[in-house]
């Protein structure tokens, strides 16, 4: 077979080879994203995602979507502009959640015995689905950043509320009131995470009374717009074929 000849001899063979290639790329991409995104998210959102007594209505709501929209934006840039595949954000979140669940179950529970109901990860899927759909329907990075980024921030808290609300039921404990999540943090001893490290309920949003979460979510959505732009460009830049050509 010379270099000018095709490696396949029929259309059926070509389709088969193409699908095999699809699965190989998908499998590899999934685990590469899982690894990179997981490390990134643990380094930037770490404790807010680890513990229920960090999942508050101010900082967790603000920080988690901002640091989470990074990889979805970059992977979207690659999959959409090169292949018109609108599942970059969902692929990232599927990878991240799988990695996180493996980590929480095997490490946090299996090795160090923290109950899973104290260390489960945040749910980022609703925002990811909407982000992918907006990119697909709009075919616009700007609209995806503005509408998708905002939605990513806004959907985060309500998307998690059904999971964390039961842990915000109050309890009286030795003469003090706390939530069940606070009590988990107090009961299940973390030698290296003293109470003062906890970054919750800090800030100056006091004029909004008890309705702080929507304000935090809007701010998070606004910041997610900016972060989306930056990481989308990262994705486009890394997605160039210049590197291959020069090699």
């Amino acid at each position: 077979m010379s270099a000018s000849q095709s490696a396949v001899r029929s259309r059926a063979e070509a389709v088969k080879a193409s699908r095999t290639f699809d699965w190989l790329i998908c499998f590899t991409l999934f685990f590469v994203v899982l690894g990179g995104y997981h490390i990134h998210y643990m380094l930037t959102g770490g404790d807010w995602d680890f513990w229920t007594d960090w999942k508050d209505r101010r900082l967790w709501v603000t920080v988690a979507p901002i640091v989470a929209i990074t990889f979805p934006a970059a992977v979207q840039a690659m999959l959409w502009w090169r292949y018109r595949l609108p599942f970059g954000a969902v692929l990232c979140i599927l990878g991240l959640l799988l990695g996180e669940w493996i980590n929480r179950y095997l490490n946090f529970w299996g090795w160090t015995y923290f109950p899973v109901n104290f260390v489960f990860p945040s749910n980022l899927m609703p925002g990811a689905i909407v982000l992918d759909v907006i990119l697909m329907l709009s075919n616009s990075m700007v609209l995806t950043a503005v509408l998708g980024g905002l939605s990513f921030g806004l959907l985060f808290y309500p998307g998690n509320w059904p999971i964390i609300a039961p842990l915000h039921v109050p309890v009286e404990y030795n003469g003090m009131m706390m939530t069940l999540a606070d009590l988990q943090g107090y009961h299940y001893v973390r030698t290296g995470t003293p109470e003062y490290i906890r970054m919750v309920e800090k800030g100056t949003l006091r004029t909004f009374g008890k309705d702080v979460a929507p304000v935090s979510a809007f701010f998070s959505g606004f910041m997610s717009i900016l972060i989306y732009f930056i990481w989308h460009f990262f994705g486009q830049w890394f997605n160039k074929t210049d590197f291959v050509k020069s090699a």
Binding site: D53, D56, A165, M176, D182
Partner: peptide, 16 residues
């Protein structure tokens, strides 16, 4: 979110 609020009408913020 709506059904959760119905099921858990009393919730409080984390204490710090």
């Amino acid at each position: 979110m709506s059904t959760t609020n119905e099921k858990f009408p009393v919730t409080t913020p984390l204490q710090a």
